[in-house]
């Protein structure tokens, strides 16, 4: 009886608490972005949040036409290359995605299916191989890139970023392959299917969500990476957006730097945020299939 009363009181209040937490989480997630989106449409935006009197699309137009802003006598950078930066970032993002998926999926599958001595060691080694902080590796990486001719080369940037994402992606994809029952492919195999045909017809479709996660995460790391292009890219027409933004926002006190054109910088940032969302939208079905109503963890 007491249990029943407790239940009738507790369930709705749990839900209420759930909604409160949900609201707080929403506020925490979204408030910082308000400034970005408002300033992108503000003709005279500044570093802090202010509600504009009028709304304009000029900032976005400037990103693509490469005209100078009107505010101030001079701005830290003029947006001459901005549209190229977007193309470069897209290239790096998709190249990283392709390289990572093409290399880590087979490796993850092999590690999932093969049994050999020292497999645990190899798995741990793969995970730990890149655990030296990036900044410490800067000089060796630069020299290596120079030897291999990858300096000032977008493909080189993608390869180096991919080499950093591959270890964790191998682990993630291996987890997905582990979940695919071996019996499926063994049956197909016994039925006389060619081995590779089995892979493409049976295993790959089953690993779809895993591949989507890997593709999405590697696209993100390629698209958003700052350190690797900072080391390897020299020409402004080859900058990705991350480097470009760093050359627009000049904040260091005591150093030279003219006013920042916040409007076009925020517009570029908004544009910068869109492709990951599109890629997310494409993969969302695979990323998390919201069909498991049956799991209740509470």
């Amino acid at each position: 009886m007491a249990k029943k009363i407790l239940k009738t009181i507790a369930e709705p209040s749990f839900t209420a608490i759930g909604y409160v937490i949900l609201f707080l989480l929403f506020a925490y997630t979204l408030t910082p972005l308000v400034w970005l989106f408002i300033t992108a449409f503000n003709p005279r935006g500044g570093p802090y949040l202010e509600i504009p009197k009028e709304i304009t699309l000029d900032n976005f137009i400037r990103v693509f036409t490469g005209e100078r802003g009107t505010g101030g006598t001079g701005t830290a950078a003029h947006p001459i290359y901005m549209s190229r930066w977007i193309a470069n970032s897209l290239f790096i993002g998709f190249a990283t995605m392709l390289i990572t998926v093409l290399l880590s999926a087979p490796a993850g599958y092999a590690l999932s299916r093969l049994e050999f001595k020292g497999k645990d060691f190899l798995m741990t080694a793969i995970l730990l191989i890149g655990f030296m902080p990036m900044t410490s590796k800067m000089l060796p990486l630069y020299r290596l890139g120079k030897i291999l001719g990858l300096i000032d080369n977008l493909l080189g940037v993608a390869i180096v970023i991919a080499s950093g994402t591959i270890p964790t992606q191998i682990w993630i994809i291996k987890g997905f392959f582990d979940h695919i029952p071996r019996e499926i492919e063994e049956q197909a195999w016994i039925c006389g299917c060619d081995y590779l045909a089995t892979l493409f017809r049976v295993v790959l479709p089953a690993a779809g969500p895993g591949l989507a996660v890997v593709a999405f995460l590697s696209f993100l790391s390629g698209w958003g990476n700052f350190t690797v292009p900072l080391i390897m890219i020299y020409s402004e027409p080859l900058y990705p957006i991350s480097l470009g933004l760093a050359s627009i926002f000049v904040h260091n006190p005591g150093e030279i730097g003219l006013a920042i054109d916040y409007g076009s910088a925020c517009a570029l940032s908004v544009i910068y945020a869109i492709p990951p969302m599109v890629v997310y939208y494409i993969f969302r079905e695979h990323l998390m299939k919201i069909r498991l109503g049956k799991i209740e963890i509470r």
Binding site: L230, Y234, S235, E236, L243, A246, S247, N252
Partner: peptide
């Protein structure tokens, strides 16, 4: 040929 680095991180590069 003009090569560049962003203001932040220029001397490191």
């Amino acid at each position: 040929k003009i090569l560049t680095a962003p203001h932040k991180g220029y001397h490191e590069k």
